[in-house]
Design a protein around this nucleic acid. Structure first.
Lengths: 349, 349
DNA sequence: TTGAAAGCGTTACCAC
DNA sequence: GTGGTAACGCTTTCAA
């Protein structure tokens, strides 16, 4: 710990420059010198200071990843996919959750100052902050968020899957579909609503929007209660298309607690395909969460190493998973449909 | 980005020392000087280099956390609790997953060289590695892992909860209990088995062990199939106490797929209380995952700041959550029982 | 192949 | 209160 490169140099009877070389480039020094240095380093249990090294090299050898929250299974998977690739590329991973932090912008800026590149998930932070970071020259990759010109992005396909889901609900007989979720909270959600509505209306059915405070199970329960309270006046919608699985799971609870049968009385669908969705028999759209993270890591690496100048915007395929919350068959039928993966490049002068 | 403290000093017409002071200690410089410096820094969009700062201060201002995997909801929650406190304490968080990495030891050692302190979750890495790190003076906090003298530790209570679970199974009529999980894989699991067995045998019933490869749903399914194949010869155990929820969920699937009714034909319990457990009606033991991480962050901070010399070993309380996988009542009954939290201190010369 | 020395961008000590 | 300057521990020219 207190042993520095100087101690090793002294013990091996060489200069610090030689130690530095011997310990990294195997073949820039004599085998004998190398041997002496390695031995001395081992004797002293020398571990190079990363701080010294980083400062000299002018790089952090670390990437950051910012997410709103890690509590749902969604972001955790993305982070995991990201970390796994980053480690392979020999870069450390710094994490930052912005959930419920008033000073999120400062925290993210601080993080940016500690790493060579940044991945930002969804609505973790305002767009201004991202712009400021890219302007300073720190590469950024956006995940599950509206692409911007000065950063790469990776997204899961939304429109086609939402349309497929809409068609499915209509096929199952829905004439009135309630979309549960706040389209203003995330561009992903907004996209899904738009395409779902288009598909549903194309079939002559209608879509209404049930606003929610966040994407938690609790909000789902409350949304169910709100819908039930309007039941006498408006009747129950034929289907509830929820913006994510947790909302849908809460919805299911709330509806069933009131004696509403799903899917007999109304249909319910989610988005994400978290583990609990399987056990709840929830129809949903599966996203390749781990791949989102993994791709982001690769893209960021290219940006950091200046392997590529133009920014790319990738879209990964999703699957519609049909379960018992929208079908009457007793056995869980899993109809899968896959959309294609797309990459868009944009020239950057 | 290329703008350094020297540029600011030049523009403000002061020395770099003054810039450094003005930007941190508000009151070690004249209000006027401060104003000039802040203005210059703003004009130049100056952002202090963390590398330079860290080297000068001899600290990383970052903590590491190592976990086996982030895929289950368990570790993700711990990491989240950890990050949330660490951010408050103004420290960055470096993450590292060791899952399926042959060079885990090197990776962890590398991480240790990049931060001021380390949290290690469960069986993320071999004990030797931890010892080497503590010997070099980097503080370590262990979570969900057998305590060692040279590090702090935070664990969820195991024995009392396992005994409670054992009593519960016996109360529900179990005479033969199969413990599903590998006690050699983790000290937590071994402890649970020991206490469960003691409680069950105290009541005159017996415990057998069903070995599994890992703690995944798939392993649970396979364990169920294995048990079913021995059914004719040995009969089915009255209860399956699984080492974690994912095993238990797989078990439920496997059993039900073969027409076995739970809880009528056999009981099933898990451990952790992940979200899916609620939807599967799984009886389980809830651990305070977020708190484990939060406590670890606080302890590590004390260690880093040398606020405390002795090592402490904390045990956090758990709850038994009884659901339909062990009770015949149609409605999900939630019986909770809480054990007390304990702290043990050990003097360290 | 090796060594001397100049950075890398801060902080912190010591005079003034 | 402020300025000069020596660390901090390494990498990397540039000579030898």
């Amino acid at each position: 710990m207190a042993t520095t490169i100087r101690d090793v140099a002294h013990r091996a009877g060489v200069s610090i420059a030689t130690v530095s070389r011997a310990l990294r480039d195997a073949d820039s020094v004599t085998p004998q010198t190398r041997q002496r240095v390695t031995q001395a380093a081992a004797d002293l249990e020398y571990v190079p200071s990363q701080l010294g090294r980083q400062l000299a090299q002018g790089r952090h050898a670390a990437n950051g990843i910012v997410f709103p929250d890690l509590s749902g299974p969604y972001y955790a998977e993305v982070v995991l996919g990201y970390e796994s690739v980053a480690a392979e590329l020999d870069r450390s991973v710094l994490i930052l959750s912005t959930h419920g932090r008033r000073d999120a912008a400062d925290l993210v800026a601080g993080l940016a100052a500690r790493c060579d590149g940044l991945v930002v998930l969804a609505h973790a932070v305002h767009e201004d902050v991202i712009e400021r970071i890219t302007r300073r020259g720190t590469p950024v990759v956006l995940v599950a968020r509206t692409p911007v010109p000065d950063a790469d992005s990776v997204n899961a396909e939304n429109s086609a899957s939402a349309a497929m889901l809409g068609d499915h609900l209509v096929d199952r007989g829905a004439r009135t579909v309630a979309f549960v979720g706040d389209p203003d909270a995330s561009s992903d959600v907004a996209e899904r609503l738009t395409s779902l509505r288009a598909a549903v209306e194309r079939a002559g059915a209608t879509v209404s929007v049930v606003p929610v405070a966040d994407f938690s199970e609790d909000s789902g329960v409350r949304a169910a209660e709100a819908a039930l309270s309007r039941r006498r006046a408006e009747g129950l919608p034929d289907a509830f298309a929820c913006a994510n699985d947790e909302l849908a799971l809460g919805m299911l609870q709330g509806l069933r607690a009131a004696g509403v049968r799903v899917p007999e009385d109304t249909l319910v669908s989610g988005w994400d395909d978290v583990m609990a969705a399987r056990y709840a028999g929830l129809t949903t759209v599966r996203q390749p969460m781990r791949d989102l993270g993994a791709r982001a890591a690769h893209l960021l690496d290219q940006l950091i190493n200046r392997t590529r100048e133009e920014h790319v915007h990738e879209v990964l395929a999703t699957e519609l998973i049909v379960r018992t919350s929208t079908t009457t068959s007793t056995t869980t039928s899993t109809t899968t449909s896959t959309t294609t993966s797309t990459t868009t490049s944009e020239g950057t002068p």
